[in-house]
């Protein structure tokens, strides 16, 4: 599908040029956040689209990266207060995250589909209680005043480019994996785990490895986030934000890698700009108070999620793909010939 690469390239160029004409608030606050959320979501979309694993533990890995950096860098407040330099801390945090992803991955790898979802959700919430209750590392109050490296300190545009570069790295890596022998084996595991096992593939190990790989990028996003945010508390890795990540991926389209960033854009955009949609102010009464008020953002996101699951389960990127195939039916016919599933979905 050449249109896909073209569109991604165009959006990429647009994002590189964005600081030239975007406001500081839009670039440094909104788009940096979109890129970071998109980066974590892409690790989830990679797992679900390539490995058939819809994980809810990616957000935990993301949070652990933040807590790890916080514990190593901070010199006062809660936690270990090791007072290390930011760059070595980043490396150690990434190692911790990758190791954690390996542990969670190997514990969950034998389960599939909905069992996998439930198990990773359990791990995620246990992680929340861990950082809440274990005051050695944080406690419910969380950690504040975590400085980024001097290179990023007070340079929101540099951090934006950092997030953009990491996003590009993740996108290219995940796309490269799709075509590698490992990626093909993973797709085999997604569609026919039993057949793959009987062909001699070590199915749990393939799943674990994919999860570890995704965990690295979730951790990378977590480091960026703590540099951008300067603080982290257990509430930010609680069950709500954990589900938000899945919501982002579902809104964007959980079967398309690009959907991760698209979903993050819609999610953040709805959060910031919902009130400013013209015409909404005239709706009064209950709807105004209970649905459209700024603090009722979750209701809007929940409704959006329901709408997508009812109308178009493949999310916004699925809608884009369908528009594209409506314009150019030939391209889509070719694609369908490749991805058709002879088993009718039976696993």
């Amino acid at each position: 599908m050449r249109a896909r690469e073209g569109a991604v390239l165009l959006v990429g160029l647009f994002l590189v040029a964005l600081p030239l004409f975007g406001t500081d608030f839009f670039v440094g606050s909104i788009m940096t956040r979109v890129l970071m959320l998109g980066l974590v979501a892409s690790s989830l979309v990679f797992l679900s689209s390539q490995g058939g694993m819809v994980s809810l533990a990616n957000w935990l890995v993301f949070g652990v990266a933040g807590f790890a950096v916080g514990n190593m860098v901070a010199t006062s407040g809660r936690g270990l207060k090791l007072g290390w330099a930011p760059w070595p801390s980043m490396v150690v945090a990434l190692v911790i995250c990758t190791a954690l992803a390996w542990v969670i991955g190997s514990l969950s790898a034998k389960t599939t589909e909905i069992y996998f979802l439930m198990l990773t959700l359990t791990f995620a919430v246990i992680g929340f209680f861990f950082f809440g209750q274990v005051t050695t590392f944080s406690g419910f109050g969380g950690m504040t005043g975590i400085d980024p490296p001097a290179f990023f300190d007070d340079h929101p545009i540099r951090l934006y480019y950092g997030a953009l570069a990491c996003s590009a790295l993740a996108y290219l890596s995940f796309r490269a994996i799709e075509r590698s022998p490992f990626g093909l084996a993973l797709q085999g595991v997604r569609d026919e785990p039993i057949r793959m096992a009987s062909l001699g593939f070590d199915v749990p190990r393939l799943r674990t490895f994919a999860f570890t790989f995704a965990g690295f990028f979730a951790g990378l996003a977590g480091v960026l986030n703590i540099w951008w945010n300067g603080q982290i508390d257990p509430t930010s890795i609680g069950i709500g934000p954990t589900l938000d990540l899945l919501i982002i991926a579902v809104i964007g389209g959980i079967m398309h890698l690009e959907g991760a960033w698209l979903g993050a854009f819609i999610f953040v955009g709805a959060n910031v700009y919902l009130r400013e949609i013209p015409g909404l102010g005239s709706i009064g009464g209950f709807v105004q108070e209970r649905v459209l008020a700024q603090e009722r953002f979750n209701t809007v996101i929940g409704l959006l999620l329901l709408l997508i699951m009812v109308a178009s389960p493949d999310g916004a990127s699925g809608v884009l793909a369908r528009i594209h195939s409506a314009i150019r039916p030939n391209a889509s016919a070719k694609r369908r010939a490749i991805t058709i599933d002879p088993t009718g979905g039976y696993k």
């Binding site: 979802l117 899945l246 919501i247 979750n298 929940g302 409704l303 999620l305 329901l306 699951m309």
Partner: peptide, 16 residues
Amino acid sequence: LRQAIITMGVAVILAD
């Protein structure tokens, strides 16, 4: 999976 996400949407709305 679709059902899990649908019930999740209901949960988010009701909790809010």
